[in-house]
Design a protein around this nucleic acid. Structure first.
Lengths: 338, 338
DNA sequence: AATATAATCGAAATCGGTTTCGTAAACAAA
DNA sequence: TTTGTTTACGAAACCGATTTCGATTATATT
C-alpha cells in the first residue's frame, strides 16, 4: 500500500506537506500541491481509513441494527424493513457514510451492541428492531451515541414513524363505510406501534357508534404466517363469523387469504380482508389485498437525514418525524349486504 | 474513551503490559494480569478497532457488493439475494467479521469499488451483482483482494453457484413428462447463469426427441415485472399458444400468472406455469407455482466459508462450490391432454 | 556461592495519518 | 535599509493500539 510517506519521498517533501496538499490546506505552494497530487494518482494512493479515523474523530461509518427477533422473518429478508434499509442506505451512501451491521461478535470476542459501537467508533446508529425493550438495545439508547429509531418511541431518542393512527383509522372507516360492523383485527404483538393502531381501530368504531367488543381484537404476531393461519381459522369457526378481518400486515394477510380459502369461503363475497404496510405481495395475491401503504422510501430518507444531522451538528435533541400513510384499495373488500 | 494508557496509569504499569495482558501474552504475571483485566472491565474499556487494524493488518471487516442494477429490484429488496446475504451474514458474524456495504462514495470523495476496499482495508469482499462485466467489478476481480462471487464465473475467482443446469433440466423434464411439447422459456438477460439454463432447456428437449425452435426462447429480464408481463402477453397471443411457460424466476412468474389471468386463461388447465428460485412468493400465489428451489441458505454459508478460508489461509486459489437444487411441485402444472 | 535459567516488565519503534507551531525565505511597507 | 508580513514548509506530538528486544529480578542448578 502506498502511504503519504512514499509520496513524500518521491516528491522530496515532508509527509506533513503531502497530507496538507491532499486535504486542501492553504499553506502549500501551487506547484508543490500539483506535484503531490499527480504523484498520488500515479502511485495509486488511497488514504488509510483507519489511520484517518484515529486522528480525526470520524469513521464515516454508521452502524445498522436491523434485527427482527421473535419472528420467522429475520432482518434483511423482512420485506418491510428491507425496503426502509434500502432507502436509508441510498441516502447515507450519497452523503459518504458506509453502513456496517451491528453484531454481537467482534473478532474473537462476544460483545454487547454498545461495546461493538465503541470498538468500531460508528458515527451513529440506526435501529429498527422488534425487541425494543431488549436490555442491550436500552443500553445503546441510553448512551451518548447518535441514534435514530424506526417504529418505536423512546423518551430521548429521535424516531421516525408512520402515522399509524391515521392508517388504521382509514382502514377501519373504509370497512365501516362498506357497511361492515363485525370487524376483527388480528393485530401484531404489543408494542408502541401496535397500541396506537389498536386505539385507532377502537376509536374509529366508537366514533361510528359501534361498540367494540373484546372478540374483535386478537393478538397475532407480525410476519408470522403460522400463528396468523391458526388465529384466522379460529375466527372463521366462530358462531358469528365476522364480515371483515384486518390483519397485522400484508404478509400474514396473504396467508390469511389461504386459510380463508381452505375454509371454503370466498374473498370478498364472504369475508372482506385488509392488510397493512403496502407490500408488493398485497398486489400479487389474488384478490389484490386492500392495505395501508407505509412510505418506506420516505421513512428511510428521513431516518438518514435525521441521523446525519445529529452526527454533524452534534445536536442530539429528540425530533420525531411522522410520515404519512395512504389507503390502497385492492379487490379484497366488498360492501356488506345484511 | 478509555485507552490502554488510562488503564496503565491506574494499574501502575506500562501500556505494553496492558496490551499483553489483554492479548493473553505469556509474559505477564498472574496478579498483574488480573489487576489489569478487572480495571479494564471496571473502567469500561473497549479496544479501538481502528488502532488495532493499523498494527495488526486485519480489520475483521468484509465488504459486501450486492447491487442489482438493470432491474427495478435493487440490492436488499431483491428477494433472492436478500436471503443469500442473510445467511452469509449469519455465518460471517459468527466468525467475528463485520459486514459493510461497498459504495462509490467515501467521505467527501467519489471512489471506485477497489479504492473503497483499499481505504477501508476490507479483509475480503463478497460479490453478487448482475452487472458482472462492469469495469469496476472487473478491476476488483483482478486485484489481489480476497473475493468470492455468487452466481457468476470468472477465470481466477472462487464462486458459488447453484446447479443451474440440473435445475432447468428438472423443470423441463417434468413438463415433458406431463406431456408438454410446446414449452416456452422466458429467460432472463444473458449471463453466465442464463446461458447454462438455456442450454439445459434445449438439451433436455433434444434428449426427448423434441426439436427446439427459436420461438421457444424469449429474452426477458430477471425480476422485472413489466417486461415479463409484456412478453407473456406476446406469447399468449401467438397463433399456436404454448401449453407451458417457464419464467426466469418466481417473482416474474407471479406477474406472468396475472397476465395469463388477464387473457382469461386458467392455470394449469389452459397453460402450465413454472418459475425458478423457490421464493416464498411462489407458495403464496394461487395456484402455487412449480419452481426450482435454490438453496439460498447453503449458498450464503458456502460463500462465507470460502471467503473466510481465503482470508485466513491466504490461499486465493479458485475453488468453485456447486449447490444442489430441488424441484418443488406446486399446483401450476398439469398433464397436457392433446 | 556462583552460575544458568525463567519470569516479568517496559522503552521504543511502528502502523498511517493530522495538526500545531516555529522558522526561514520572500516580499512589501516604512 | 530596516521592519513587518506573507508564503511555504517541516519537526514533532498525537491518535490507540502491537510487538520486539533488552534489562531486571527471581528462581533453579551445580
Amino acid at each position: 500500500m502506498v502511504t503519504i510517506y512514499d509520496i513524500a519521498k518521491k516528491v522530496g517533501c515532508s509527509s506533513a506537506t503531502v497530507s496538507k496538499a491532499l486535504n486542501n490546506y492553504p499553506d502549500v505552494n501551487h506547484k508543490t500541491r500539483n506535484r503531490i497530487l499527480s504523484f498520488a494518482k500515479e502511485m495509486g494512493y488511497s488514504p488509510n481509513a483507519q489511520a484517518q479515523a484515529l486522528t480525526k474523530k470520524k469513521t464515516w461509518n454508521i452502524g445498522v441494527l436491523f434485527e427482527v427477533e421473535a419472528t420467522n422473518k429475520t432482518g434483511l429478508t423482512h420485506y418491510f424493513f428491507a425496503q426502509i434499509l434500502e432507502s436509508f442506505k441510498a441516502y447515507t451512501e450519497e452523503k459518504g457514510y458506509d453502513l456496517t451491521f451491528l453484531s454481537k461478535k467482534a473478532g474473537n470476542d462476544n460483545v454487547s451492541f454498545l461495546q461493538h459501537v465503541r470498538r468500531r467508533h460508528f458515527d451513529g446508529v440506526i435501529i429498527a428492531n422488534f425487541d425494543y425493550e431488549n436490555e442491550e438495545i436500552l443500553e445503546l439508547i441510553h448512551s451518548n451515541v447518535p441514534i435514530v429509531v424506526i417504529d418505536y418511541n423512546y423518551d430521548t431518542v429521535s424516531s421516525i414513524l408512520s402515522d399509524n393512527y391515521e392508517g388504521l383509522k382509514l382502514l377501519t372507516q373504509y370497512l365501516i363505510d362498506l357497511n361492515h360492523r363485525d370487524i376483527v383485527y388480528i393485530h401484531g404483538q404489543h408494542s408502541y406501534v401496535t397500541d396506537i393502531r389498536i386505539n385507532a381501530f377502537v376509536d374509529t368504531l366508537t366514533e361510528n357508534g359501534i361498540a367494540a367488543t373484546k372478540e374483535q381484537l386478537l393478538e397475532g404476531l407480525y410476519y408470522d404466517k403460522d400463528v396468523t393461519y391458526q388465529k384466522t381459522l379460529e375466527v372463521l369457526q366462530r358462531a358469528n363469523r365476522p364480515t371483515a378481518i384486518i390483519f397485522s400486515d400484508d404478509y400474514v394477510a396473504a396467508w390469511g387469504v389461504r386459510a380463508i380459502g381452505k375454509m371454503g369461503l370466498r374473498i370478498p363475497e364472504d369475508v372482506s380482508v385488509a392488510g397493512f404496510d403496502g407490500l408488493e405481495i398485497a398486489e400479487m395475491i389474488t384478490p389484490r389485498i386492500t392495505t395501508v401503504r407505509q412510505n418506506t422510501e420516505l421513512i428511510g430518507i428521513q431516518a438518514a437525514k435525521r441521523l446525519i444531522d445529529i452526527i454533524e451538528t452534534k445536536n442530539h435533541s429528540k425530533i420525531d418525524v411522522h410520515v404519512g400513510v395512504e389507503l390502497v384499495k385492492g379487490k379484497s373488500c366488498k360492501k356488506h349486504e345484511g
